[in-house]
Design a protein around this nucleic acid. Structure first.
Lengths: 163, 163, 163, 163
DNA sequence: TTTT
DNA sequence: TTTT
């Protein structure tokens, strides 16, 4: 009914851009999101490592501008996929399907003249066409792992894709 | 850069549907959002009364299905408008521009057969066309109060509108 | 750095209340969160099934008042735990650690006299003591699965717990 | 029932730290939050200017570390206060009561060795004591403008305060 | 393994 | 398998 996530963290490595058999861009990366300090007094700073998936134009923008270590804000929704692995066992994968990504550190290392921060949205406004908040990140075919069938060009039409 | 609000509360009265001079639907209502219990022990339950604005298709859906007292979830962004009032004084108005509204109580009074809860999004997906999460609720012309110039048909084109 | 999730959905089954060896209450349940309608036109309504964990007082309140099928709002943060399963393989588990749960349907089936909706927060204010938004749901010991070592009373002190 | 806001923007000026007659710290600042690009094609970048209020320890931390222009993330809830102004007219003020503020730019101008970003929470964990997510930012006395009765030491006890 |  |  309602499913919204907002995260700020740092990329654990460079983003990975891939394409579905139908040619749709998908970028994945992991955000390290530091937990609040705990009273337990553990020495190491703890973090949650959260997988982020972006599609289409936003995927390409993320692949172009995000790099390992960059501070980044992500807005999206939680998605739980499942697939059967090679031993026939069902595996559950939880990801955040992002529809809004903010680059909180400029590429040059944070100096003001570069602007400091930039934006990227799922969709792309009027000229980009077609994208709707009503179907941000949805799409039935996502149930399959787009990376499982990599190289095996099964039939995915653009209509099946999330936005 | 990032501006997201999620509220659950009850309508203080029936929603009001109006149209801009260009014929675009706008619906306004107020949500009473109860505050968490306080330690201060005040007798009356306190609430914040928050003005909600919806546009276009979502405005019409809200006008059709929401009623005074209904429990409702709203997702959107904070907008601060200002205009000069009749004494020439600048007035600031803070509203939540909703792009997602969830009806948490069915019209019939909560019985299960009616389904219990329903949804409405800004935009409306592919067939609805045109709406994008990248410009949810944006639009420069909103700076003017759409209700100030009511009846005075100044020129607002659909292109100026938020989504 | 920042990690916030808000969900509205229905419980797929009754919540499960358990206790850690140190006697701290933990309640788990799964929310079925319907996805927005897709253009793909699949017949079945799709949903994400998201695991929710609550601790302490909130755990007991959820166990007492939530039931299968109830419409419920959850606010919290994403946590990714991992543990080594019985085959020595590392397993990753993603959950939402809730610090705020809203019961959107009264137990009696939704009639108004019962109040319609109720609230429960992590902590419990001044008299409840000790709980802080700065450490909502944190805690290093959570890294282990509290249900894995069930019945094996290893040493967990209350100080290790999230809030 | 549920009231959550997350914003990322820049301070329009240095934060202002004041104290209530009872000696409780309150800091106010304004965030300029850029709107998403619009199709309307207005030349100037539009922003919403949103008033933020923080209390107690978080107020002091914000006053110490935030400065005009800094990119900042704020998490909190919308509050609508009202008071009667000097002409006897009721004035409504909408603010975000923050319980979590993230400093996304280090004071030194963004260089990496300074760490890049820091955190501040309402409350302050176990040793800080007493803070609870159940009463984040609540409190009946806030209904009066804390700055209206400045210098007029009326009786406000710490117990009346939001967290 | 899933809710309405 | 993790970022600063």
């Amino acid at each position: 009914m309602l499913n919204r996530v907002i995260l700020i963290g740092r990329l654990t490595r460079d983003p990975e851009l891939r394409y579905t058999p139908a040619g749709v861009a998908v970028t994945q990366f992991t955000l390290a999101v530091d937990r609040p300090f705990t009273s337990g007094g553990s020495k190491e700073r703890e973090a949650d490592f959260i997988n982020i998936v972006t599609w289409r134009q936003l995927a390409e923008t993320c692949a172009n501008y995000l790099r390992k270590g960059r501070l980044t804000a992500v807005e999206g929704r939680i998605q739980v996929r499942n697939y059967d692995n090679n031993e026939g066992k069902r595996v559950y994968v939880t990801e955040v399907i992002a529809d809004n990504v903010r680059f909180l550190e400029s590429s040059g290392g944070g100096n003001r003249e570069e602007g400091g921060s930039s934006n990227a949205n799922a969709g792309g406004g009027y000229s980009g066409g077609g994208s709707g908040s009503s179907n941000r990140g949805g799409g039935s075919r996502e149930q399959q792992d787009p990376f499982i069938d990599d190289g095996k060009p099964i039939d995915i039409s653009d209509d099946d894709l999330p936005f």
